[in-house]
């Protein structure tokens, strides 16, 4: 298990960590999506690596002069096939993500996470302030109304 033998697994780990770091650390949504793609792609490398058999050929049925070869060492095709699906999933994810970023850019005028978060925060605060004001006004008016109502009730 020396480094040269398993370099591809190390590459997987490095790619994956780089991708994860970008997703977490970068404030720009597009960069985050790039990181996410990198992260997903590293998994493809992992699968392909595990399917590989040293000295193996492609899993193709070979005939020698009309007769099948008795023994062929070939790499496992299943992980490769699985990764076809994973590639599709990755592309679809990136597409959906980019579409969302476009919409966010339209709605907020920015695709930076911290700017968008700040806008969201202000929106929530404005709503809270409005509600508090509404409640205060309502209390004031209902207090007088209740007062009048109570007096009325007692007289009745």
């Amino acid at each position: 298990m020396t480094l040269p033998n398993v370099w591809n697994y190390w590459a997987v780990v490095v790619l994956m960590m780089v991708g994860l770091y970008i997703v977490i650390a970068k404030p720009n949504y597009v960069k985050k999506l790039m990181g996410l793609s990198l992260f997903q792609v590293s998994v493809i490398m992992l699968y392909v690596s595990m399917g590989r058999v040293t000295g193996g050929t492609a899993p193709i049925y070979i005939l020698d002069d009309g007769a099948p070869r008795p023994f062929v060492l070939y790499t496992n095709p299943v992980p490769h096939v699985l990764m076809l699906t994973a590639i599709v999933v990755g592309i679809a994810t990136t597409a959906v993500g980019l579409a969302l970023v476009v919409r966010i850019r339209e709605a907020y005028g920015s695709s930076e996470e911290d700017v968008v978060a700040e806008l969201d925060r202000r929106e929530v605060e404005a709503a809270n302030a409005l509600a508090a004001q509404r409640a205060a006004e309502s209390d004031a008016s209902s207090a007088t109304a209740a007062h009048a109502g109570a007096s009325h009730e007692e007289h009745a």
Binding site: V43, I104, D120
Partner: peptide, 26 residues
């Protein structure tokens, strides 16, 4: 419009989760 950011955040975390599952299966 906050739905958009909620969806994108969900996408980031959800994809990480999905990829973890994929690694585990592998």
């Amino acid at each position: 419009r906050r739905a958009l950011t909620a969806a994108l955040n969900y996408l980031f975390l959800g994809t990480l989760g999905g990829t973890f599952v994929l690694i585990g299966i592998g």
